[in-house]
């Protein structure tokens, strides 16, 4: 499928650290519970939100419909110079 290993690992580990590792090291005191909840929920919501955006694009069903001027600009700046021979 269209998923790649690197981004999924990087972001899952990133939010995993925030949501699982950091709460363990939350400072002791009356606010420890709150800090833990805050960290865990932040990680959960942010990871879920990233995951949905990623998965929604893993297997695109439609492609962007663009202006031809925009397409020429894309060719120039994002690579793939325009070829002159026929056949896309």
């Amino acid at each position: 499928m269209g998923a790649s290993f690197v981004p999924i690992t990087v972001f899952t580990i990133l939010w995993g650290v925030v949501g699982i590792v950091c709460p363990i090291f939350a400072p002791k005191g009356p606010n420890r519970g709150i800090i833990q909840v805050v960290l865990m929920l932040t990680a959960a919501t942010c990871w879920l939100f990233w995951l949905c955006a990623y998965m929604a694009q893993m297997n695109p069903l439609i492609g962007p419909r663009l202006n031809n001027e925009t397409l020429i600009w894309i060719s120039r700046t994002w690579g793939n110079p325009i070829s002159n021979h026929t056949g896309a």
Binding site: N59, P60, L61, I62, G63, P64, R65, L66, N67, N68, L71, I72, I74, S75, W78, G79, N80, I82, S83, N84, H85, T86, G87, A88
Partner: peptide, 20 residues
């Protein structure tokens, strides 16, 4: 996403859709 249309298609069509 990349652009793979050739020059003539690009000049003839105002709107073009990229195909996933």
């Amino acid at each position: 996403w990349r652009q793979n249309y050739n020059a003539s298609t690009l000049t003839e069509n105002k709107l073009l859709q990229l195909n996933p």
